[in-house]
Amino acid sequence: MTLLARLLGKTTVAPASVARDRLRVIVEQTGSASPDYLPELRRDILDAIARYISIPSEDVNVTVTRDGNEAVLELNVALPE
């Protein structure tokens, strides 16, 4: 979005930037950089969470990020109000 459009409060987002954001999430969760047990791990985590609270699956993010030779498993859960 151009600065001008942003200042004018236009909220339409460019399709390409939506695509970029969607792909980033996919690559973090299931891309070649992430171990192949990640989908199953995410499933188990979802099952565990579902025993306590009911939240939509897209509010649970399980990602692995690599930084040099260190890998970090990150669990991000957006709790309902």
Partner: peptide, 12 residues
């Protein structure tokens, strides 16, 4: 799932 926009909701 991508074309339908539900890729983040795929579990099984």
């Amino acid at each position: 799932d991508l074309i339908m926009g539900c890729e983040r909701r795929v579990i099984y």
